[in-house]
Computed example of a mutant assay.
Amino acid sequence: MPHGHSHSHGQGCGHEASDVDHALEMGIEYSLYTKIDKDNMECLNEEIENSGKTVFKPYENRLDMTKYVESDADEELLFNIPFTGNIKLKGIIICGANDDTHPNKVKLFKNRPKMTFDDAKVKPDQEFELTRDINGQIEYSPKVVTFSSVHHLSLYFPSNFGDDKTRIFYIGLRGEFSEAHYHGVTICNYEARANAADHKDKAFDGVGRAIQ
């Protein structure tokens, strides 16, 4: 029985279409950059102010070498990334140059706002040894259980392959996003529905709270 789809070996157009579909799919999956609170995001030790923000861009722009971040005093870089809600982080892509400025390690910390380089010396929630990736094709997979409810992500790049400076062109984040829930509102609504008949031995004030 035929399996129902052609590989178009002789013409090549099937592969081109497949490549386009793959790029579109990756673009959709790697869209968490749109959920970053850019106003409050920071990159420590960046040579040019606010250049760290430019590496969080659409997947299809990952090979744009005109926008990048380069470290200043030494090879370390630390990104503090707040989100506008909660994310479940499933994948990371780190794209750099094909030289010694490419970072060789990244440490991930969740929900620790305003981290400093001193803070980053503690044990991370996860870390990866990096391979040089100039095309943005290597994905690193964080532990889903650990990174299932993240409102702030810190990425610490402590070193590179031997250069004095570290340069990064693209950081891609893949996962799921959910709006932040304000539990206080829910609690207030619940309290407002309190039934005095269920608490005959207590008096209630105007908003349904028991008066002791």
Rank of each mutant, 00 (worst) to 15 (best):
S71H: 12
D72C: 08
D72V: 00
A73Y: 11
A73F: 08
A73K: 14
D74G: 08
E75V: 00
E75L: 00
E75I: 00
E76C: 05
L77G: 03
F79S: 05
F79H: 03
F79Y: 15
F79M: 14
I81R: 09
I81L: 13
I81Q: 08
I81V: 14
P82N: 03
N86C: 12
K88A: 15
K88Q: 15
L89A: 11
K90Y: 04
G91Y: 08
G91H: 09
I92M: 13
I92G: 06
I94E: 01
G96V: 09
A97L: 05
A97F: 09
D99M: 04
D100P: 04
T101E: 08
P103N: 02
N104Q: 03
V106C: 06
V106W: 08
K107D: 08
L108V: 01
L108P: 08
F109H: 11
K110C: 05
K110D: 05
K110H: 13
N111K: 11
N111T: 05
N111G: 07
R112L: 13
R112Y: 10
P113N: 04
K114L: 09
K114Q: 11
M115W: 11
M115A: 11
M115G: 11
M115K: 05
T116D: 15
T116N: 13
D118I: 07
D118R: 02
D119R: 04
A120F: 04
A120P: 14
K121L: 12
K121A: 13
K121F: 01
K123Y: 04
K123N: 14
K123H: 11
K123Q: 15
D125F: 14
D125A: 14
Q126S: 12
Q126V: 02
E127L: 04
E127T: 02
F128H: 07
F128E: 08
F128K: 09
D133W: 05
I134K: 14
I134F: 08
I134N: 12
N135P: 00
G136E: 10
Q137T: 15
Q137L: 14
Q137E: 15
Q137R: 15
I138G: 04
E139F: 01
E139H: 02
Y140A: 07
Y140H: 09
Y140W: 04
K143I: 00
K143R: 13
V144A: 09
V144C: 03
V145D: 15
V145H: 06
T146M: 06
T146H: 05
T146C: 04
F147W: 10
S148A: 14
S148I: 02
S148G: 10
S149Q: 12
S149C: 12
V150R: 03
H151M: 05
H151V: 00
H151G: 08
L153M: 10
L153I: 07
L153H: 06
L155K: 14
L155D: 15
Y156M: 06
Y156V: 02
